[in-house]
Design a protein around this nucleic acid. Sequence first.
DNA 1: GCAGAACGTCTGTAGAACAGAACATCTGTG
DNA 2: CACAGATGTTCTGTTCTACAGACGTTCTGC
Lengths: 161, 161
Amino acid sequence: MTALDEDFGWTLGVVFRAYVKATNLAVGDLPGGHRGYQILTAATRDQPESQSALCQQLGIDRTVMTYLLDDLERASLVTRQHAPTDRRTRLVVATDTGRTRLADLDRRLQHAEAHVLAGLSREDQASLKALLRKLAVHANAADPVENTCQVVQDIAAGTPQ
Amino acid sequence: MTALDEDFGWTLGVVFRAYVKATNLAVGDLPGGHRGYQILTAATRDQPESQSALCQQLGIDRTVMTYLLDDLERASLVTRQHAPTDRRTRLVVATDTGRTRLADLDRRLQHAEAHVLAGLSREDQASLKALLRKLAVHANAADPVENTCQVVQDIAAGTPQ
DNA sequence: GCAGAACGTCTGTAGAACAGAACATCTGTG
DNA sequence: CACAGATGTTCTGTTCTACAGACGTTCTGC
């Protein structure tokens, strides 16, 4: 259709926006929208060891996480508890209400995801998910600030301005 | 590593954020960051038939496009011209400076993209790009507001609240 | 006990999405 | 031609989010 078809960034953006839109629609009035869902998922299934670990995992700024959790806590979906081993850190734990809500949300999200992926065959959907997961795990492992200086130079080295 | 590995939305978000970060780094002081690059690409290679067409194609709000173009115009990379057929619409055209800059940016972006995709083999990279493109073209065609009511119900129908 | 680090919260700033109004221009109808 | 309505762009104002920095609390090593 256009020259942008060839652009990895463009395709990624289109798919990402479609996903966010469908997901925010699917979760309804859940505090935090699609991010609220991810927080709830992590709190229920991953037992994040601290609030900041959760931030890093979800790519959410720590100051934003504060009020997202405020909202989720106000809705009785999660609670913040002092970690017994380190009273500085807060453990984010899903409540029973939160777990129940998550089960419902999972069903809704499945619909939304199916809608976004509707353009691909079943096999292609599986391939795409597998590839993205491989890439995400790699990127997530490499990302944390890493040897930023090195990488910055590497990336910026396309050509001297 | 975590339960989120299985979540399509999480993997998509991680990859997207990694791409945006790498790209914004790679384009340097280009007005608009990674979006400026996409605008410049479209203006050079796609001859967008109007500003709003460009907005829709790139998923950028029209009020945001206004000042993004203001900045790009101020940097002499693009110009806005009245369309001869309809004086309401503005044609976004890359200047010679813009085209030169784009050639440089392309090289830089290639590095950034390679960095983001580093976790995959050459074949996997090609597969991922192809799948994303297929999906993006489909989503982009379906997206434009479409029969929203129908889709909203479809997505929200996971379970009655 | 104390200095320094880490965790979470709060404040302030900037970027961006979004809704709505305003203005210029086009299109269709009479 | 005059007019009403639609469309493209810009402007205004609100909200959400990212980000940087300061602060209080708590832990760690000396």
